[in-house]
Amino acid sequence: MKVDRELVRHLEILARLTLTEEEEMKMIKDMNDILAYVEKIGELDLHGVEPTYTVVEARTVLRKDEVRKGLAQKMALANVPAKKGNFIKVSSIQG
C-alpha cells in the first residue's frame, strides 16, 4: 500500500481534520513507514481464524429498568462551549 496526497486528503475529510501542506508531507511519510511495518501481518496464515474484537465475552449487558440518579442538568451542561438557556447551541449543519 502506498499512501499519497490524494489518499491523505480523502482521510482528512473522513476524520474531520485539515492538515497544512507541511503536515501532509510528514503524514504521507509517517503513514508509509507505519503501514509498511504493520503489513508484516500479511505473512501470517489466518485462514479460518476468527477475529477477536474483545477479550471479554461479547454479550449484551442490561441493567434493571429502574430510575437512578444521573448527572444534574447543570453539571451536564457545565462544559458546553456555546449554550442558549438549557440547550446546546450548534452551528448550521448545512455547508
Binding site: 462551549p81 456555546a82 455547508g95
Partner: peptide, 13 residues
C-alpha cells in the same frame, strides 16, 4: 460542541 476546545464557525463541519 458538547465540551472541550471549540473554534466556532458558521458551518458545523
Amino acid at each position: 460542541v458538547r465540551y472541550g476546545l471549540s473554534k466556532s464557525d458558521p458551518s458545523l463541519k
